[in-house]
Design a binder for these strands. Structure first.
Lengths: 141, 141
DNA sequence: ATTCTTGCAAAAGGTTTGCACGCCT
DNA sequence: AGGCGTGCAAACCTTTTGCAAGAAT
């Protein structure tokens, strides 16, 4: 349970932390920019400062309640969920829909390519930018 | 020839543009952050403003003399060379050495994965972070 | 009581823009 | 003269930090 993680990490159960946890887990959305969370807090009329959102997310990251993912070039994005297995992301450039996937063949090739050049692969970063084929009528993000 | 591109794009041949072009093509290095170029200009005692570096690189990008690549999360990076074929990057996290590569198997898998989820792949972003195996004694970047 | 948290404002770091001066034709 | 190009400073945007006041145990 999330609250256990907080306690174990020596973090107190506070209103801002609970509200942010709630946002992270409500609905089917799992990826949030800092500003998305901040705007949601404003919508809920919670008086939580932007600096607090940044601080809390960094703390959550440290105790594995969220992980930081680089989906866009300009804003930090956090992904809800604990101890997730490795995966990459596919994003619809029109509606923003995100799909997580992991492809063994690609993972294997990456290792081989690194080895071929005398490198040892430490991590990788891969995002596929796509368009949903059906039913995505939203405007470009 | 580079100067032709400039003229065709309606850009005048000026000292800052020539100096930046020269930096882009001298040596074997092909990837530069804005600041690397700016620092090199300072080292050469060229009085070129940082804003100019940004503006010139944006213009060079528009006429295909450089392309913008997202290698680090915090700083824009530009790659010298015109009309390059698609490729991805592998970076040594210790010495910063960059290798460009393109793997058909990965490219093909990316298409397939997109299709599998009902997406149409438009572009992708992939960077492998590695360690050189031999002879890389530099400190972490 | 003590330690942790927070909101606010200011600072930081990278990038862009406004503006007046300068250069070239 | 006219327009493009430039340096400088100021503005911008996201993120971080300092600090004094407030909460949690």
């Amino acid at each position: 349970m999330d609250l256990e993680n907080l306690k174990q990490a020596g973090l107190k159960i506070t209103v801002p932390r609970l509200k942010i946890l709630h946002i992270l887990h409500s609905g089917c959305k799992r990826h949030f920019t800092v500003d998305e969370i901040y705007q949601e807090l404003i919508k809920q009329k919670a008086s939580v400062g932007l600096a607090t959102v940044y601080r809390v997310l960094a703390q959550f990251e440290a105790c594995n309640l969220v992980s930081r993912v680089q989906l866009y070039n300009d804003q930090a994005t956090f992904e809800a969920g604990q101890d997730r297995d490795h995966h990459d992301h596919m994003i619809c450039i029109k509606c923003g829909k995100i799909v997580e996937f992991c492809d063994d063949i690609i993972e294997e090739r990456q290792e081989k390519i690194a080895k071929k050049y005398g490198f040892k692969l430490k991590k990788h970063h891969m995002v596929l930018f796509c368009k949903c084929q059906n039913g995505c009528k939203n405007k470009e993000k």
